[in-house]
Design a protein around this nucleic acid. Structure first.
Length: 721
DNA sequence: ACGGCACGGGG
DNA sequence: GTGTACGTGCCGT
């Protein structure tokens, strides 16, 4: 019988691996043996001594082997240490580590995922079609057009008694499952839910905030009735610990994961990839990374690319060095910035332009890594001391003899993305392929960041520098080519150029693509585009613009509508103004339309002053980056945070807070703002403060046309008189 | 005036 | 398990 690998995880008590398959005839559970190994590299003499020492603590049959311990180097002597008790792997590694003084020996394959070990050992992979008897793969993870099982989903939600922030103490009002509402007593609802799940037997349970609330809440309610809530195909959950951590330059909070056994729980709020690329995107990433669906749904695209690199390294005979003490070892600013000037940015020509083309390189940074063979082991490699491939500006030599790990992993991903994008209009598979392309896009985007991340397994700062150096070189030279073909370069950022002129853009793109071996594509032609000035200096404005494409679509960057902390009322204002301005088909008409856009501003101001705007349109949402007592300034967020604190709620750094501004100038938190849970429905908001925000939003769009914030205020004042 | 604080970008 | 650094603008002190 054949089935797709739906899940794979270790049974920590039996020291065996558990596999769940999705077959056309239902789910199948299989248990398989696996002995994970950790490896030690040292001198032959030390390894011999280590073998004896290990035998003394009961670890027998450690075996000398030859393996590659770093990229691009020959095999070395290592000791393969079998770990029979899964739970002891970490402590055994720490014991061995403690036996060696500094750099006397190095440990490998310690922090590899158990599922990854299993798959790599067996030649299987997550979501791969497998012959279950004998556990043989009938599939290849590199396949682009692969068979996908039909997975049955169940949408689970709860409604809770009481108003305000739902807590574990609130009673259960109702449960909804695929739109069916269960009610009655709590016990009854929970019983009904379990029997419904048993009868329907879904492969996937979808929730919104299932990790952070729904599942722990339902379990808690069940425990109050001496019941145990089981939603998996087998008893028990695989629950992890929650954590605040630093990523993307900010703190986020990741609640404990509630993973089911034999059934996949996808928390839509906890899955970046699901939100961006849906189930097809998750399946694509699961297959390529070999990480089971349920796990990959909670991981970042960066972790996925990291896993793909590990897979490739292991498949090519490498061991993976143990990354110890990761969290404490974060990079300190300094050395990096000195030599890294980042991506190239032109100073845009402020104001409105028409007759504008935007051209973008296809996945520029990943394409550079592939085209110029950028990888940690290829820069200044020992095998090519006289390489003629030299990184611009920096002068690093690049290996000419063999393809690096990073390009080797990236090339098929770039290729897949290109194929999926090219087939997005296929009537049968197009939608599916588009989702897969989206997932891969994010994998490619994060890959660049990983090369410069000191804690990345295959990161090296020189890679990061080299990529941006090539990027700047390519963009500057592309701009020069464009100018030589009679285009005016209005703006350029990293991988995009905005060109004014009536030359042959298609031919220009072909010429530049051929020059660098990286595809330059036409993003579109703008009817008009506005580059915004820097508020304080009036010049520059690097990442803030808005424009109208020929097909009627708006492209917006860096302005209030794009920000998550913009209240809906200001977002609506900008959208309405933009809708109004979109009626203009060129720059001249645009300027003529401005008076009409100003009337939109007046409408919003008047509505706000009426006092009739509903609270949800006034809500400000902001991320909390520290604990209440750690804030040095008293601002709106802190006021709202204090309210929650007063009522016994604490937010973790990384969580968001929502509030309406009641009296912006007040120093008392309860008068200044009202946190969302405590809104009564008839709260009086700070109309003038919101009008000010509306004027700010309006002047953000119109400042290049003489409508500064101050002038916007003056106009408002004179009209009210 | 200056520092605290939060957000975006990538497609 | 977890990309960084920077540009930007508002707001508090």
């Amino acid at each position: 019988m054949r089935g797709w690998v739906l899940d794979c995880y270790p049974d920590m008590d039996a020291d065996r691996m558990v596999l769940w398959f999705k077959t056309p005839r239902g789910p199948v559970r299989v248990v398989d043996d696996m002995t994970p190994h950790i490896y030690v590299h040292a001198t032959k003499e030390r390894l011999q001594k280590l073998t004896n020492d290990l035998a003394m603590i009961g670890v027998k049959d450690a075996e000398p082997q030859k393996r590659k311990v770093s990229l691009g180097e020959k095999e070395k002597d290592v000791l393969a240490v079998p770990v029979r008790e899964y739970a002891s792997l970490q402590s055994l590694a720490m014991t061995i580590d403690s036996w060696g003084r500094y750099r006397e020996h190095a440990l490998f394959n310690v922090d590899l995922r158990m599922d990854q070990r299993y798959f790599l050992g067996k030649g299987l992979f997550a979501m791969g079609l497998t012959e279950i008897d004998g556990l043989k793969s009938m599939d290849a993870w590199r396949r682009i057009d692969y068979p996908v099982p039909e997975l049955k989903g169940l949408d689970l939600g709860v409604a809770v008694n009481g108003s305000g922030i739902p807590t574990m103490d609130d009673g259960l009002a109702s449960i909804s499952a695929n739109g069916v509402v269960l009610d009655g007593s709590e016990e009854r609802m929970l019983e009904d839910l379990m029997s419904l799940v048993r009868d329907e037997d879904p492969d996937i349970i979808y929730t919104d905030r299932g990790d952070s609330f729904v599942l722990p809440y339902l379990q808690h309610r069940a425990s109050l009735h001496d019941m145990s809530l089981e939603l998996g195909r087998e008893q028990g959950e695989r629950t992890s610990r929650g954590k605040s951590y630093f990523t993307y330059g900010r703190i986020v909070y990741k609640p404990p994961a509630h993973k089911l056994r034999g059934r996949v729980h996808i928390d839509r709020q906890a899955s970046f990839t699901y939100a961006e690329a849906g189930l097809p995107g998750l399946i694509e990433m699961s297959r390529l990374s070999h990480i089971p669906l349920q796990d990959i749904s909670r991981l970042s695209p960066g972790s996925a690319i990291s896993a793909m690199q590990v897979n490739e390294a292991v498949r090519s005979g490498h061991l993976v060095r143990w990354k110890k003490n990761l969290p404490e070892d974060f990079k300190t600013a300094g050395a990096l910035i000195a030599c890294d000037r980042g991506g190239f940015i032109y100073e845009p020509k402020v104001g409105i332009h028409d007759d504008v083309w935007e051209v973008d390189f296809f996945s520029l940074y990943p394409s550079i890594m592939v085209r110029y063979n950028i990888s940690p082991e290829t820069l200044n490699c020992r095998c090519c001391p006289t390489s003629s491939r030299i990184v611009p500006e920096l002068g690093y030599r690049v290996c000419e003899k063999s393809t690096g790990l990073v390009p080797h992993v990236l090339e098929p991903i770039l290729n897949r993305r290109r194929v999926y994008k090219s087939m997005k209009n296929d009537p049968r598979k197009g939608a599916n392929y588009q989702q897969r392309a989206k997932a891969l896009k994010w994998v490619l985007v994060t890959c660049f960041g990983y090369t410069g991340y000191r804690n990345a397994r295959f990161g090296r700062i020189e890679c990061h520098e080299s990529i941006t150096a090539y990027g700047r070189d390519i963009l500057i030279r592309s701009a020069a080519i464009a100018e030589s073909r009679d285009f005016e370069v209005l703006h350029g950022i990293v991988d995009s150029l905005w060109l004014h002129g009536s030359g042959n853009v298609r031919r220009l793109c072909d010429e530049i693509s051929a020059e660098f071996g990286i595809q330059l594509n036409i993003e579109g032609r703008y009817r008009w585009i506005v580059f915004l000035p820097n508020v304080s200096t009036g010049v520059g404005a690097l990442n803030r613009y808005y424009g109208l494409f020929e097909d009627g679509e708006l492209k917006l960057r860096g302005i209030a509508v794009r920000r998550k902390d913009t209240p809906m009322i200001v977002e609506e204002l900008q959208q309405d103004m933009l809708r109004c301005l979109s009626k203009a088909h060129d720059a001249e008409r645009f300027v003529e339309t401005i008076p009409e856009a100003l009337q939109v501003v007046d409408r919003y101001a008047a509505e706000l002053r009426n006092g009739t705007v509903a609270a949800d349109r006034l809500m400000v949402r902001r991320r909390i980056t520290r604990r209440l007592e750690e804030y040095a300034q008293f601002n709106d967020s802190v006021a709202a945070l204090r309210q929650l604190h007063d009522k016994g709620f604490e937010l973790q750094p990384g969580q968001s807070i929502e509030y309406v501004i009641l009296d912006s100038g007040s120093e008392r938190s309860w008068e200044r703002v009202r946190a969302a849970p405590f809104l009564s429905g008839d709260d009086r908001y700070d109309g003038e403060k919101y009008v000010e925000m509306v004027h700010r939003g309006a002047s953000e769009l119109l400042s290049p046309f003489g409508w500064s914030f101050e002038r916007m205020r003056q106009r408002d004042g004179s009209q009210r008189r």
